[in-house]
Design a protein around this nucleic acid. Structure first.
Lengths: 205, 205
DNA sequence: CCTACCGATCGGTAGG
DNA sequence: CCTACCGATCGGTAGG
């Protein structure tokens, strides 16, 4: 309940984005991704912004709240992109491929935020963790339903949709460890290579 | 170099195991797994042992050194078990299956240590991280070679061995998040279910 | 293994 | 957004 209120406040802030606040989010995201949340003193963030540590608290209410903003915004963006992919139509296999492209596109566009999401979400307080888990479950549901659709229409075999979802997502998430957006491989190529290994297993009966 | 010396010292300590030292390792492993390395004060460890915090330092030289002991011992045990599986003979496909069983057996027998290994190894100092990376590379090499053998003997198709290794290991490692050694699923069953999804892709040409 | 204690650092606040 | 500062906690040590 409390966290729902906070999320409404967040949405409000994003309708009236302060450029200074966006700076803060990006600076903190990069520092948290590089050094970890707990190893990043608030003074490192204020230093990078060129202000005193005390002045940070006119932008944020707590360090934990700052982490929450980064993590939940990333989880929301994963969800938004997968919703778009799901609505784009085609066979279940085509949708699943587009879902994987959307997933990899997050690593291409928001790698630091993704790393903070994956590595640091457990450091949030209980209410905030609940929000993140809820959003992740909605996200995984899109995969599960797509695979279930594919079983119904004959694209896929007798795989358990939950099991298939987790094999696909854990294989994709491994890419967040090594994928370099500035390297030679496109996000689409990585997703397709992964699916070359996994699709035969999804089709097997 | 320095870290090689430390590892020799570790081996020595393990030849003369003090039961008190083993208690310490197990208590710290459980606390680090549950709360995270940085959120676990040394006082939480000494409390759980029933001694004062200062007395801990007659057993360890630093908190970081304690983390290293846990992580490198886990990485070593992963390697030892996979070496046994590799030497057990049979086709490449049989060996790969046994490698996956060995991997899952670590989650069954040493889940807390595995979680500390995966979640906290980045908090080690540079020398210690190098040791861990070196051991992980030796570990992955066993998988890579097994898949390469399987391509040569016709068990597998045209998959890139490195790519196949990472798909297999990332799918297995996902199990460390949810697998419950006391639950209904055996470690072998989980590994086999995972391989049912992945083997068809490894065989595909 | 204990007592007693350290210097450093932390997130956060009051008042302007 | 700054100055000045806080109470708490941290990993670790000296001397026994």
């Amino acid at each position: 309940m409390r966290s729902m209120a906070k999320r409404a406040k967040t949405a409000q802030r994003m309708r009236l984005p302060s450029s200074r606040y966006n700076d803060l989010i990006h600076i903190a995201t990069d520092l948290f991704a590089r050094d970890g949340y707990e190893r990043t003193p608030v003074r490192a963030i204020s230093d990078a912004m060129g202000i005193e540590s005390g002045s940070l608290y006119s932008h944020i209410s707590s360090k934990e709240g700052l982490l929450y903003e980064i993590v939940i915004e990333c989880a929301d963006e994963f969800f938004r992109r997968s919703e778009l992919a799901r609505k784009s139509g085609g066979t279940a296999e085509q949708i699943l491929r587009r879902l994987c492209h959307a997933h990899m596109s997050m690593f291409r566009d928001e790698l630091a935020a993704c790393q903070v999401y994956y590595d640091e979400w457990r450091k949030l307080n209980a209410d905030h963790q609940e929000d993140v888990i809820a959003q992740r479950k909605r996200y995984e549901k899109i995969y599960r339903q797509t695979i279930a659709d594919g079983i119904r229409d004959g694209s896929f075999g007798t795989i358990d949709p939950q099991w298939g979802t987790m094999v696909v997502l854990s294989a994709l998430n491994w890419a967040s460890v090594w994928y370099n957006p500035k390297g030679p491989l496109t996000a689409e190529h990585v997703a397709d290579s992964m699916l070359d290994v996994i699709f035969p297993g999804l089709r097997a009966r």
